[in-house]
């Protein structure tokens, strides 16, 4: 089980990094999404893995619980990464619509597009 989670995190990271290094906005956004998954699972897994041990207190029996703290942190991280993705998507869209170009790198050779001539 540990190997499955670790290899999945590694693969998501690798795929995320590769896409983040692309030159167009959309792949970069996909890349950051994949990196978010990887980071969230990483943080969650830092509480160690356990099945059938939800962090819900059982008043009647003494049972094992998975670590609630990383879960709480990751929960807000998921929501915040949505906020981040939304802002980045908006920036990318605004930039594309204004410049008709979704390249993320500045090109010094060509005059800036999208400005009123």
């Amino acid at each position: 089980m540990e190997f499955l989670v670790a290899s999945a995190v590694g693969l998501l990271t690798a795929a995320g990094i590769y896409l983040v290094l692309r030159r167009r906005t959309f792949p970069v956004i996909l890349g950051t999404s994949l990196l978010s998954y990887a980071v969230n699972v990483f943080l969650f897994a830092s509480g160690r893995l356990a099945s059938n041990a939800p962090p819900i207190l059982n008043k009647y029996a003494d049972v094992a619980y998975s670590d609630p703290l990383p879960q709480a942190l990751v929960l807000t991280a998921i929501v915040i990464s949505f906020g981040m993705t939304a802002v980045v998507v908006m920036v990318a869209l605004g930039a594309y619509l204004s410049a008709r170009n979704d390249n993320i790198n500045m090109d010094d050779t060509a005059p800036a597009q999208g400005e009123d001539a």
Partner: peptide
């Protein structure tokens, strides 16, 4: 599966919203 039901619920609902958002954006992008 790994005993984080709250995370599962959050992730799946965020997933829906994110995908819709990206679809909306992709409508305008190449």
């Amino acid at each position: 599966y790994l005993s984080a039901p709250d995370l599962a619920l959050t992730q799946i609902s965020v997933e829906v919203v994110t995908i819709i958002l990206m679809l909306l954006a992709l409508n305008f992008l190449p």
